[in-house]
Design a protein around this nucleic acid. Structure first.
Lengths: 227, 227
DNA sequence: GTTGACATTGACGTCGACGTCAACTTAGCT
DNA sequence: AGCTAAGTTGACGTCGACGTCAATGTCAAC
């Protein structure tokens, strides 16, 4: 236990002091990692607003003060958590082309790829449902989290846009379709539908959802659905 | 000014006392309305988290205590505000069929209607951008707001689903398309795209956006786009 | 075994926001 | 005018969360 020393003189404006650097020792890194795990737990259970720094340190099994050795504030841990998760998500999504497409027409191959992407997206979202909901929430008032989110979305949309442009060059999609806006809209469709079902509703048939999403996506681009 | 009386004994748990009833006098109704307007201002400026009850009363030009005559807490005003806005939104959206469709094939009429709905949606969203963003934010931690939101979405999706089913009966849309999931997905597309552009990005060409949305929507349903 | 940089602890002061209430004002009724 | 119920006021006590820091523990290197 700490000494019953004189209490520390508190500052007027909190959160404006030194931004903690990354730990240098192995021990420090472990501590930081434990705090991150604990933070994820507490955030998922209580939400961002109701999460208390005290609870995070307690869940990590360390003293309250130790938290501030690694993170400047509640928002800071959250940002770190989001960054970490986003990296994982996009790493898992860029496993493109791994599963070989079936022998078929170029259009069939394209539809197959869309379907695979949709399935990967749903799976990934399902694994991080709670955090994605929080992400949505914090985005509104933390500019840095908003930037993280926007960057993630740009990356995602960029990939889709390139696919569409490729399909246009191959003559499979009408050339006068605005690839950028279409990419945004289609990403919004999948994102919004999955978000709604997983975060807000929760009662849905995954297979029907994915099948409908793929079909709508393909038809929206003018790709043949059956054949 | 109030008397410098003895300070009131505060309760242990706040917010659990009597839920204020609606005002009975005309004066009371005006006051409540002013508070609602002020609350909207403050929420839009500061966000839900940073909004202070004090600021709301100040903006309304009344004493801090008066706030509690009409609303039990910050969350309570917010709920009232959301309810009010949602009513307005859906009232303005149900002006369906007002503008006569052009003489054309049934499919052309359908596409025309989709376009009009998209335009109305964007306009309505644009007028309430700040509040819609907050709505998103509060949804995550207030069950009641979540319920309001879900109800609003169900109403919206329900209308779309009926349209799709009608088109299926008319033979304009493939009968084996899952109308419910498709409706959800298409609403998510428009909602998500508009939300992204208005709330998160802000730099977009409305005409191109709406045109692309309409085209994707129509093609997704298998409706002819040009002709 | 001693050293010292790094890590850990938890009690503490401070602060901001909240909700209350006793006194006071307003306005409708008789 | 007198009465009363509804509305209004703002100073005040309370509370919870925060971030700090002096004291103490740890461990690798010498």
């Amino acid at each position: 236990m700490p000494r019953p020393s004189a209490a520390g003189p508190p500052p007027g404006d909190a959160g404006t002091s030194a931004p903690p650097a990354l730990p240098t020792t192995e021990r420090g890194r472990r501590m930081r990692a434990r705090l991150l795990v604990a933070a994820r737990e507490v955030f998922e259970r209580d939400g961002f607003l109701e999460a208390r720094v005290t609870d995070i340190s307690a869940a990590a099994g360390v003293a309250h003060g130790s938290f501030y050795t690694y993170f400047g504030s509640k928002t800071a841990v959250f940002r770190a958590l989001v960054a970490e998760t986003m990296d994982d998500l996009y790493a898992s999504m860029s496993t493109r082309g791994e599963t070989g497409p079936p022998d078929g027409s170029p259009a069939e191959v394209a539809v197959h790829r869309i379907d695979q992407a949709n399935r990967r997206f749903v799976a990934m979202y399902r694994q991080n449902t709670a955090l994605m909901a929080l992400f949505e929430q914090v985005t509104t008032f933390d500019p840095e989290v908003r930037a993280q989110r926007q960057a993630a979305r740009e990356r995602n949309v960029g990939r889709v846009r390139h696919s569409i442009e490729q399909l246009q060059r191959d003559g499979l999609v009408a050339a006068d379709l605005d690839a950028e806006y279409a990419a945004h809209a289609l990403v919004a469709m999948v994102n919004g539908a999955v978000h709604y079902w997983l975060v807000l509703d929760g009662d849905f048939e995954e297979e029907r959802l994915v099948a409908t999403l793929t079909r709508l996506w393909a038809q929206a681009l003018g790709l043949p659905v059956h054949a």
